[in-house]
Simulated assay, not measured.
Amino acid sequence: MAQYGDVERFASWLRMLRERAGHSYETLAQKTGISRSSLHRYCVGTSVPPDYGVAHRIATVCGATPAELRELHRLWALADAERGPRASPEEGQELAAGAPEAPVSAARHPESPESPESPESPESPESPGTAETPETAEAPRELAPQPPSEHQTPGERRRFVGGRRLTVVTAVAAVLVLAVVTWRASLGSSPAGSAEAVDRRLLFSAGCRPVVSMGQHDECVREAQLLLRRRGATIGVDGSFGPETLRRVTAFQVLAGISPNGVVADPTKKALYESKVRLDTWSPEKVRERIREVFTEAPDDAVAIADCQSFLDPLHILPNTNGSRNWGLFQISDTRLRELKGTPLKALDPEWNIQAAKRLWNRERDFHDWPHCSRALKSAAPTAAASSTPR
């Protein structure tokens, strides 16, 4: 095989795929519909598949990756070009006009014992149901046009040049078609040749539930957490769907324009992989600074209220027992949002949330809208005053 270096490289690639998959020639023949003898010839390098579709079918059954399919196509093209107009022994017999048929061997007696044949022998008979289809059978190659001789007429020379041009155009068209086939294969077409590409993203795999939700603990939750972190969310990646993950999923849904139900179903999965939504937001330092600038009359109390409500997290979301939610830095409720003509999306904007809280404060110039935290402030005030009184 020294003179067929590219053919041998192509054959060794096929052998590697077959051996890695653990398929015998007989098993591979049953799965691909290609005869066992042809498979053997392709894998030992005595023959090259007549078109890339045959090689692609073999590789796909053997579990080749898209990258391996692209490399296989490259090797097949080189091997096919190296083989050139030379035909294999089988093809030579088909091309030889009037060549006598090989003598048919005498039929064996059905009851006579047969010596076991190696399943990988090229002379072994094809098993039932594995005969090559017309699409996969090796077709005889057309003989290349012979160069013009000095005795040819000008008309014959023109016909020869035209024939060569037609051959070149046909070859270029074949290469383009094969490139398109390889490109489509690299997009992840399924081994069965289905029209739809297989979605290999983890959240869409069979290993993940259709809906990833609160209380779940597995790699699917971990994948969702990783995707949220990549979009700028401050979130632990531990594979447990707890309150923190619930808040981040809900915030992502609001920002992505998805119904904020707090569960990771198909729309949220798709957005996590494909949307450009970012969960980056203000730092606690910037939040404190801006609150002090807006609440000039009570800057310290306003910062304390926001810290009590949301830990200065602009994307903090808290569900209530009645099904409503509180949103953002000052945990503005759904009821207050409607009064202020706001939306959850606006409430997660820290600037809007601070300004909305100031509007609520201006009504009575106190923090009565946050009774829990305002009571904490009042109870802390005497303690602070007592601690500052000299003994």
Results as ranks from 00 to 15, higher is better:
109 H>C: 05
91 E>T: 04
80 D>M: 12
80 D>W: 10
106 A>W: 02
97 A>E: 14
86 R>N: 12
103 P>F: 01
106 A>E: 12
89 P>Y: 01
106 A>L: 09
95 L>H: 10
108 R>C: 04
82 E>W: 03
108 R>F: 00
101 E>T: 11
89 P>E: 08
101 E>P: 09
74 R>A: 07
85 P>E: 10
85 P>H: 07
82 E>F: 03
99 A>M: 13
100 P>S: 06
106 A>F: 00
104 V>L: 09
102 A>R: 13
89 P>T: 00
94 E>A: 13
92 G>R: 15
76 W>C: 10
80 D>S: 15
95 L>N: 14
80 D>K: 11
97 A>P: 15
88 S>G: 08
87 A>C: 09
73 H>I: 00
105 S>M: 09
75 L>C: 03
73 H>F: 06
90 E>P: 08
102 A>Y: 11
77 A>N: 07
97 A>L: 11
96 A>T: 14
78 L>F: 11
79 A>P: 10
101 E>W: 02
87 A>S: 15
109 H>P: 09
83 R>N: 03
85 P>R: 06
101 E>Y: 07
105 S>E: 12
100 P>V: 02
104 V>Q: 08
84 G>W: 03
104 V>F: 00
93 Q>R: 15
100 P>M: 02
89 P>I: 01
92 G>M: 14
79 A>Q: 06
106 A>Y: 03
78 L>R: 05
85 P>Q: 08
94 E>W: 08
81 A>R: 07
92 G>T: 14
79 A>I: 11
72 L>D: 06
85 P>W: 08
108 R>S: 13
84 G>S: 07
104 V>H: 05
85 P>I: 04
96 A>Y: 06
108 R>Y: 03
76 W>M: 04
86 R>P: 08
79 A>E: 08
99 A>K: 02
86 R>W: 05
88 S>E: 14
82 E>Q: 15
96 A>W: 14
84 G>H: 00
94 E>I: 13
78 L>I: 01
91 E>F: 01
81 A>Q: 12
84 G>D: 12
94 E>G: 05
87 A>P: 12
99 A>F: 13
104 V>M: 02
74 R>V: 01
85 P>T: 05
83 R>H: 04
98 G>W: 12
72 L>P: 04
105 S>L: 10
91 E>D: 15
104 V>I: 02
103 P>Y: 03
104 V>S: 06
88 S>F: 03
91 E>G: 14
101 E>A: 15
81 A>V: 06
82 E>T: 05
76 W>L: 07
74 R>T: 02
90 E>R: 13
77 A>W: 11
102 A>V: 11
84 G>M: 01
95 L>K: 12
101 E>H: 07
109 H>A: 09
75 L>Y: 05
88 S>R: 04
78 L>N: 04
105 S>K: 09
93 Q>F: 01
84 G>T: 01
93 Q>I: 00
100 P>W: 01
107 A>G: 11
109 H>S: 12
108 R>W: 00
83 R>G: 00
81 A>E: 06
105 S>P: 14
73 H>P: 03
85 P>M: 05
103 P>C: 00
91 E>K: 04
107 A>H: 00
